[in-house]
């Protein structure tokens, strides 16, 4: 009855997140999917990792691989965690799918001494061009759902996110934009170009 762990290379944005996390820390991964990041962090950074995942398949995959994951929802379940319970709370590619991104963000920096948030940048030049040329809701390889059945209900741009953090008094410690080919680009000091060229962004935040 042994479930062999699959150990393979993780997505490039997950790798950036993993690189921001210190070894032996306590990590909560909100929207952890099939547990790829948690699995990586547990085995290569010896973190004490926990996860929250909405989908039953994701939860079952995680737990049956020995990861500590609960079936839950970023919008409703974060409220039950105490302040400063984790060194890092990770929200990767999930913010845009939450009902109340601002509340979720507030909870992330409350529960975690640091929060790491990654999201697709809706101001990427290709999406801007798509909207301009086609006059329709942009779709791409990574954003492939139709507007009427996408789980992504709160898209934002890198600039939107920077403005929101500033408004909430959240400190951005590190921010990286990722181009289509995986090239990393610093957001601080180059917001305009990062917002235009970055396909996705990763932010390291603290209250």
């Amino acid at each position: 009855m042994t479930n062999k762990l699959r150990r393979k290379a993780i997505r490039v944005d997950l790798q950036i997140i993993a690189d921001m996390i210190d070894s032996d820390s306590r990590v909560l991964d909100v929207g952890c999917g099939d547990g790829a990041l948690l699995d990586y962090l547990t085995h290569f950074k010896q973190v004490d990792g926990r996860g929250i995942e909405l989908s039953t398949e994701g939860v079952n995959a995680c737990v049956s691989h020995g990861l500590s994951v609960i079936q839950g929802d970023a919008d409703t379940d974060l409220a039950y965690y105490p302040n400063g319970a984790f060194d890092y709370v990770v929200l990767s590619q999930t913010l845009q799918a939450t009902s109340n991104p601002k509340d979720v963000l507030e909870n992330l920096v409350r529960i975690g001494k640091r929060a790491i948030v990654s999201f697709p940048n809706f101001a990427h030049w290709w999406l801007r061009g798509y909207l301009l040329a086609q006059g329709r809701m942009p779709k791409s390889k990574t954003l492939s759902d139709e507007w009427y059945d996408t789980p992504n209900i709160h898209f934002c741009t890198i600039k939107d996110f920077v403005v929101l953090c500033r408004g909430m008094g959240i400190t951005v410690e590190k921010s990286i934009a990722l181009d289509k080919d995986g090239t990393r680009r610093r957001i601080q000091g180059g917001l305009f170009s990062a917002n235009l060229l970055g396909q996705q962004a990763v932010f390291l935040l603290r209250r």
Binding site: V59, S68, V69, I70, D77, Y81, F86
Partner: peptide, 18 residues
Amino acid sequence: IVRALNAVAANVSFAEIV
């Protein structure tokens, strides 16, 4: 139960089986 465990940052897994 899970929420109570989360409130004390316990190590918890929770799944609802179909």
